[in-house]
Structures are given as C-alpha cells and as structure tokens.
Design a protein around this nucleic acid. Sequence first.
DNA 1: TACTTCTTGTGAACCATTTCACATGACTCC
DNA 2: GGAGTCATGTGAAATGGTTCACAAGAAGTA
Lengths: 219, 219
Amino acid sequence: MSATIARKRISESTIHRLSLYYRTLSLLEKENYETVSSKELAKREKLTPAQVRKDLSFFGSFGTRGLGYNVNELKLKIESILGIDREWRVALIGVGNIGSALVSYKEFARQGFHIIKLFDNDQRKIGSNHKGIVVSDIKDLEKEVKEANISMVILAVPATVSQYIVDDVVKAGVTAILNFAPVNLRVPPFVHLRNENMSMELEYLSFAMVNNHAPKKPK
Amino acid sequence: MSATIARKRISESTIHRLSLYYRTLSLLEKENYETVSSKELAKREKLTPAQVRKDLSFFGSFGTRGLGYNVNELKLKIESILGIDREWRVALIGVGNIGSALVSYKEFARQGFHIIKLFDNDQRKIGSNHKGIVVSDIKDLEKEVKEANISMVILAVPATVSQYIVDDVVKAGVTAILNFAPVNLRVPPFVHLRNENMSMELEYLSFAMVNNHAPKKPK
DNA sequence: TACTTCTTGTGAACCATTTCACATGACTCC
DNA sequence: GGAGTCATGTGAAATGGTTCACAAGAAGTA
Ligand SMILES: NC(=O)c1ccc[n+]([C@@H]2O[C@H](COP(=O)([O-])OP(=O)(O)OC[C@H]3O[C@@H](n4cnc5c(N)ncnc54)[C@H](O)[C@@H]3O)[C@@H](O)[C@H]2O)c1
Ligand SMILES: NC(=O)c1ccc[n+]([C@@H]2O[C@H](COP(=O)([O-])OP(=O)(O)OC[C@H]3O[C@@H](n4cnc5c(N)ncnc54)[C@H](O)[C@@H]3O)[C@@H](O)[C@H]2O)c1
C-alpha cells in the first residue's frame, strides 16, 4: 500500500504538522539521532504524543513498538507524503521587494521547489539577472510557462493586478499558486490556491496583546 | 459592554477570519457600500453566512435585522477587537532579504504596525538608512528597544541565531514576536510568539497536487 | 522461556468548531 | 397598519479534530 494514498480526507492541520515533523526530523538527522519517539517529537513541537502518532497513522504505520521511529526512514516517508521527494518547477511573478527576497531564499530549493523562471512587466527589470535567472517579460508568460513545464507559481505582484495575472497563469495550465497579495483571488475548482498573509499574523499578535490572551502553543 | 472583552476563549480561526472580514470591509468601504449582509461577506470569503454571524456574535451584535451590517461601523468594531485601532511600535531585526522587503511594505503601517527601529549586526548595514530609518547595532538592542518603547518585534535573522536574539528581545521587555526563521523558538509563557512559515504553504500545495486533493476553500 | 520495559497504533471518548434552523426584529409597500 | 420580505443572532445538532487509554509488539535481561 502506497503511503501517499490517503483513504480519508486529511485535515489541513495534519498536513501543516507533517511539515513541522519534517523540519524537526531533518534536524535530528543532523544531530545523528537514529530513532525518535512520538514523545520526543511532540515535546519539540509542543504537541501531544498522541497527536503525532495519530497524524502519522493516517498514512501507515512507520514506527516500531518499544523503539519509536527511525529518523531517516520517517523523514523519507513524510517527504513522499508531502510530495517534496521530487523536483517542482516553479515560476515567480513580480520581482519586487518580496519577490527578490524569495528568489534568494535557498531553503525552497532544498525542499524541491526550484524557481526556474521569473516574470515582470517592468522594462528595467526584464532581461536583468537574479541569482542566475533572467527576468522574462510577463507578455510571454503563457508561452514560457508551457515551454519550461512549470507546475507551480508564486505570485508577488501588486494586489491590483493579481487577478488578471492569475487568470493568465491558469490559462497557461498551472494548477498550484501561492499568492502573496492581500486579495481573494478567483480560480477554477481544479486549481490549488494558497495565500500567504503576513498582516494576519501581526493582527493575531495585536489581538492577543489587547485581550491579554494567555499565549498558547505558537502556530 | 466593550466589544473587545471576550467572554469565552476565541479560536484562532475566528481571529484569522476577522482579519479577512476587515480587509473586505475596507474594500467595500472604498466601493461606497453602505451596508453588507453576512451572505455577501461570506460569498466574498468563501465561507457560510452562519460562520460570519457566529464569529461576530462572540463580540456583540453589530447588525440590523433585515438590513445587514453597516460597513464602516463594523470595520471600526473589528479594528477595535483586533487591536489595530492604535499605533503599535515595532522593531525589525535582521535587515536582509526578507527584512528589507518588510520595511518597504506600506500595508503594515496602514494597519497600525509602525516599524520604527531596525537592528542588524553587519557593520556594512549598521548606520545605513532604510526608508528613513537608520539601522542600529544589535548590541544596543535592549537599550534602544526600551527607549523607543517598542512592544512588538519582527525577527528576520538566520535560523541559527534566532534563539539568542529572541532571548535578548524578551529581556528587553517585548511580549509579541513574529518570527520568520524556520525554527521552534522557546519563549516564556507570557510572551506571544507567532511563526511565519512560507515553506509550509508550498508543501501544502505540493501535498494537494500529489494527492489530487480536490481544492477546497483557500486558506 | 518468562518477565520487564518501552512505545506504537487505534477505537472510543471527549472537546471544539461549524452548520442548521428558526424566532425575532426592521424596513417597505400598498 | 397589516402583509410580505429580508437578514440577524443564537440555541441545538452535526461534524470534525484531539486526547485518552489500552492491547499488543519489540527488545533486553536473566
Ligand atoms: N513587501 C512585503 O514585505 C510584502 C509583504 C506581504 C505582502 N506583500 C505583497 O506582495 C506583493 C508585492 O509586494 P512588493 O512589496 O514586492 O511590491 P513591489 O512593487 O516591490 O513589487 C511588485 C513587482 O511586480 C511587478 N509587476 C507589477 N505589475 C505587474 C504585471 N502586470 N505583471 C508582472 N509584473 C508586474 C512590478 O514591476 C514589481 O517588480 C503585493 O501584493 C504586496 O501586497 C508584500
Ligand atoms: N528570504 C526569504 O524569502 C525568506 C523566506 C522565508 C523565511 N526566511 C527566513 O528569514 C530569515 C532571514 O532570511 P534572509 O533571506 O533575509 O537572510 P539574510 O541573510 O538576507 O538576512 C539576515 C540578516 O540578519 C542579519 N543578522 C545575522 N546575524 C545577526 C545577529 N546576530 N544580529 C542581528 N542581525 C543579524 C544579517 O546581517 C542579515 O542582514 C531566515 O531565518 C530565513 O530562513 C527568508
């Protein structure tokens, strides 16, 4: 039975926690840990051991009773579940403040997300070189996205133009989009869209401070 | 009764949705809407009308039966609930790729988050000017944070040093931290810590693609 | 082999969040 | 002012997510 074929619908929180486990397992591997228990993993993530075991149990049984999980083995399993055991071909649109920062971010490539195309509509940016990638004209989006076999797009353009660009991106056949603009974008039902909203986290902090909310587990 | 005094513990999802409502209300205001129904608000956020009404009901009753909510009035209420009806004095630590992008981001100030101090440990950056703010030496963190009456910190330093810096930030009396490094930071129980983790959203997209998850409501 | 210790995997119980459904109130129009 | 329409606010029901609790497997010891 393949680990990635999930029977039940898996919750968003479970997937997010898998990301956390993955990061911690990478660390444990560097620290030369051979095995790790759900208890130890939970402690590091400020979760309960039962939560860790339940999350993993949706995808199979990877541990050994009495021993725990083999660190490297579990890491590979999670890689396969999350689909980061392959090379994703990613285009980034909008090489501005945040876009430039993202291009320089090496962690993405380490997890299989390879930004191999950049697009902008600013003549001063088109043709310029960022980390070895030449910025393309947004006008050539459809053609170049198809040619380069891009399957994911990071959108870092002003909110005002995001919807137009997303429409073009969808036309070009891309089905996964990570959007940084603070807008609700419309996409067809077969396209996966996630939003990165930094104001939201600041607002959460603000709410917590004003309401003297006892801080609980950080997100 | 003050709207910000919440009787029950309010869920994280409710607060995040308030952020969404706030953004949409700002938009509706610009579009000269006088009132808005839970139905319309829900449609724009891809939620149910009941969800919208329930979220708001935790804080009071702001609507008019048969009419809906007054756009401006509700916006002000949410501002007060989220605590963004005031000026937050924010310091940003680590003026690198992502740090520079965040300093340039005007949206934060518009929501009351004023970045008024920058810190770095790189001699080439210390003393330089970013958007009118001179970068301070991280060595002076405690002194300057206290002097400037900072109450929130955005942390954009390498993961390897984040814990040390966070310890200093806490020593300086700051109780709200937004961390961009992919690490689990330890803070005392009275400090609010949130993490911004961009890899997580890419990994979610990857998972969704690989598992042919029917895309649902975007985050 | 028998005994102890450790820790998984998982139904069942518990708790939280979302959705339903409807009584209630506000406004409009004849 | 009575009838009709619309949309809120909220208990109650339904759904979904987390934690409990324990049977059972694995390894070590003697
Ligand atoms: N800067 C931040 O820290 C930050 C934080 C959170 C969210 N965001 C969001 O990210 C987006 C980008 O922000 P930024 O600060 O990088 O802005 P920016 O203006 O620096 O960058 C936007 C880039 O998009 C390009 N662009 C504009 N129209 C285009 C088009 N039609 N086709 C292709 N490219 C186009 C511009 O030339 C520019 O290079 C915005 O939606 C912003 O709200 C930014
Ligand atoms: N670049 C991105 O797009 C991106 C995306 C997600 C997360 N992050 C995270 O954000 C953090 C910063 O990333 P970046 O790409 O901006 O890196 P960067 O190296 O460009 O910036 C880091 C900055 O921190 C400063 N710094 C280092 N040690 C310091 C210290 N002890 N005290 C004060 N300042 C110090 C450096 O001088 C530099 O200016 C990292 O943890 C990274 O993982 C970055």
